[in-house]
Design a protein around this nucleic acid. Sequence first.
DNA 1: ATGGTAGGAAGCCTA
Length: 267
Amino acid sequence: MSIAIATWNINSVRLRLPLVEHFLETTQPDVLCLQETKCPDGSFPTGAFHRLGYDHVAINGQKGYHGVAIVSKRPFTAVDKRDFCEKGDARHLAVVLDTAVGPLQLHDFYIPAGGDEPDPVINDKFAHKLAFLAELEAWLGTTPATMPSVVVGDLNIAPLADDVWSHKALLKVVSHTPIETAAFEAIRRGGGWIDVMRRFVPEPEKLYTWWSYRAADWAAADKGRRLDHVWASPDLDGRLIGVEVLRAARGWERPSDHVPVIARFDL
DNA sequence: ATGGTAGGAAGCCTA
């Protein structure tokens, strides 16, 4: 028995609902975790997901900004939302899924992007990003998870040199600064989390999930970053089947600037 | 070295 878990920053779930439907029809993941739904809970297109067989829908949305959602063919037994930094931002959602080997905790994150200036003294958004990471470290980065767990989402950090098109050019660019990448790896290692994407696509192969809208030809320039991630708790080490990055989705009509990542587990 | 695009909301913010 295998379970496929997908993550996708959709940049407005209502505007891109046809793309989401196409993705679900063609890829058929068991679970899809969305970020940047930009949709209040009352306006979330729950019915469209039900019609595609995703009967179980958990949402943590807000008006205009951020927003995360988890849609699933399999039932949840618990839903949790954590208000990081007590700002009222909709940036986290967790569910517990039933699997063949028992409950699996699944976290969906949308970590703050952090603005343009990588200095927390003059840039409140970067200070917020660092505070979010500190809170995340205290929560998920100190001891291994108490049940088999998966963390996915737009973590807005490209931690490794080959997670960006140019390590040197991006060292002072928010998402790849040493303070962010060090915090990211400290959290991951502290919790014993496996970087599932890099298990299957090790460095030095380049691996991206995001390409800026501000490029005349995103594919030709290929100046991508790996901002979207899949982590697994150490007890899932023997149950990792594979990972797919759906690069083609960046070329779809009116695309998100992020593409779906699908991870498969023997569960 | 700069500025480029996109979405939502409502006449700017975030990314």
